[in-house]
Design a protein around this nucleic acid. Sequence first.
DNA 1: AATTGTCTGATTGTCAACAATCTGGCTCCC
DNA 2: GGGAGCCAGATTGTTGACAATCAGACAATT
Lengths: 224, 224
Amino acid sequence: MNHLAALKPLEDTTIRGRTVEQLRRLVVTGELAAGMRLTETELADALGISRGPLREAIRELVDIGLLVSKPYKGLFVREITRKDLEEIYSLRTMLERFAFQEAWEKRTPEALEDLKARNKKLIGSIEAATDPLGPIEAELHLHSWCYELSGHRLLLQSWNRLKPNLQFYFAMHQQAHERKGPKRRSHDLYIRLASGNDLGAMLDHLNDHMRQGLETTIGFIDCA
Amino acid sequence: MNHLAALKPLEDTTIRGRTVEQLRRLVVTGELAAGMRLTETELADALGISRGPLREAIRELVDIGLLVSKPYKGLFVREITRKDLEEIYSLRTMLERFAFQEAWEKRTPEALEDLKARNKKLIGSIEAATDPLGPIEAELHLHSWCYELSGHRLLLQSWNRLKPNLQFYFAMHQQAHERKGPKRRSHDLYIRLASGNDLGAMLDHLNDHMRQGLETTIGFIDCA
DNA sequence: AATTGTCTGATTGTCAACAATCTGGCTCCC
DNA sequence: GGGAGCCAGATTGTTGACAATCAGACAATT
């Protein structure tokens, strides 16, 4: 910790960057409902920008998978099928197990403190119960820990691509279930094992943790 | 095989699409040397197109990792460090092991025929020795088999993002080593195990296959 | 000597108009 | 009835000009 810690990263100054962020937020929070149709001109007008930077922003979201582009028909906010969800979870399990293997030897007391801090933040966010999306972001931030610690840039990049999809689904699920977010103590074991000395146990727990996450949330999707 | 098999996919009609392909090829073959500096206007003039679609194409390549954008300084063809290579290989090992686990039960006689055909094509391409990049594409196509068979779209997408980076490195390596490509029989065991009934042995072999690939090729990189 | 201020050419960011293309529905013919 | 041809409106693709921003060099200041 140095004396510059108070500095916040300055916000994106380009229209494209800000647009990506704004659209991501709108999609992820469900303010733009799944399946909804948009067009470039319509969006550009609504945002008060021209189509150039908007197109670049859109392409980024399409690439991540938040939007689907059907040429000459319009843009559509992604819909999630059961298969999508299973794919997201199975890939995520894979990635996070790998991340823990890579990060295991790099754990330092400071890093473990950081992990605990993230969990505290998650709990705090759940108890505050102000912004319903807060806990979701906090949970994802907690899970980001192992990816960051691994030092594996490509892996972190993969996680960052997957994250918005998870976020999208969490928010969708939460809305359908009357804003019931993650439980306070849901990550207690996760933290304990991550701080311990049994990598095998941690990896096993990840399988459980993820499978449980999938099972308890998959119920309300009726699609094929 | 049906009677429409002769149909070839029609080429991309948009400037953006064609530009992505062309730039990808140029980077991957080393015709645009690693570290080389480019600018948007320069490229747009050279390609005879305007900057709009070019920018979108560039962004795609930056996202994949083939180009690096340093704002207001220029675009640079990616350079590969030893760490990059280790990351590419470790992630790839992960993904391909996962792909085989997912694909294992889906193997049909037809699918295995397809796999053998891909290996034949690889061998043919090596023996023909015309286009030095042919064997590289054929080898990647062989490895794509398990991803396609898995039916896991997200996984396939991850592989498709990783592929150009591998291709880039292979070509780079080949140029440095006087065009010595993959060996004729390099995938014999791979094919045999993939056709057999011991998933564990296949997964173990993948570790070996990849580690060997990394070790025999990592030599000539002197970077940190 | 080192830090800060200022200028300039280069580079990217943005815009608004225009062109190309597609979709969906309609007609017409068989 | 149904399939080919065609049309209108909508949507995306493309362009060239203009604006904003930056890196690097050099001067001024301490």
